Simulated assay, not measured.
Amino acid sequence: MTDDMTIRIDSEEYVLRQDGEGLQVGRRNGTDVAWLDTVEIELLPGPAREALDRGDMSDESLMTALRGVTQAEIERGG
């Protein structure tokens, strides 16, 4: 994955960007992106990593993993 990828989770649109061994997760705000967190890709469940490798942003396992990341950001007050 070399380019930013967009995924819609519930009613929010997020941007994913691979950065070395990490996956940056951001929220689109108009034309800008507010980066929320970077997650080690190896920490994602196998099916979510496979969906990410395929670029399948509609895969339920990837969406579930990212819901956890975004929920953690909300709970931290991000």
Rank of each mutant, 00 (worst) to 15 (best):
M1D: 06
M1R: 09
T2G: 12
T2N: 15
D4M: 11
M5L: 15
T6D: 14
I7M: 07
R8T: 15
R8E: 13
I9V: 06
D10N: 13
S11A: 12
S11T: 15
E12K: 12
E13C: 12
E13Q: 13
E13R: 13
Y14N: 09
Y14H: 15
L16P: 09
L16F: 07
G20E: 13
E21N: 13
G22P: 00
Q24A: 01
Q24E: 07
Q24H: 07
R28K: 14
R28T: 06
N29C: 11
N29H: 09
N29A: 11
N29W: 10
G30T: 00
T31A: 15
T31H: 08
T31S: 14
D32H: 11
D32A: 15
V33T: 15
A34H: 14
W35G: 10
W35P: 07
L36P: 08
L36C: 08
T38C: 06
T38I: 04
E40W: 02
E40D: 07
E40C: 02
E40I: 00
E42P: 02
E42L: 09
E42I: 03
E42H: 04
L43D: 12
L44T: 00
L44S: 05
P45I: 03
P45T: 00
P45N: 11
G46Y: 06
G46F: 07
P47N: 10
A48N: 05
A48R: 01
A48M: 01
R49H: 04
R49N: 04
E50Y: 04
A51L: 03
A51V: 07
L52T: 02
L52Y: 01
L52H: 00
D53H: 09
R54Y: 03
G55W: 05
G55F: 03
D56T: 04
D56K: 09
M57T: 03
E60R: 14
S61D: 14
L62E: 11
L62C: 05
M63L: 14
M63Y: 02
T64N: 10
T64W: 02
R67T: 05
G68A: 14
V69I: 12
T70L: 06
Q71T: 01
Q71M: 14
Q71G: 12
A72V: 03
A72L: 10
E73W: 08
E75S: 11
R76I: 01
R76N: 12
G77Y: 13
G77K: 10
G78C: 09
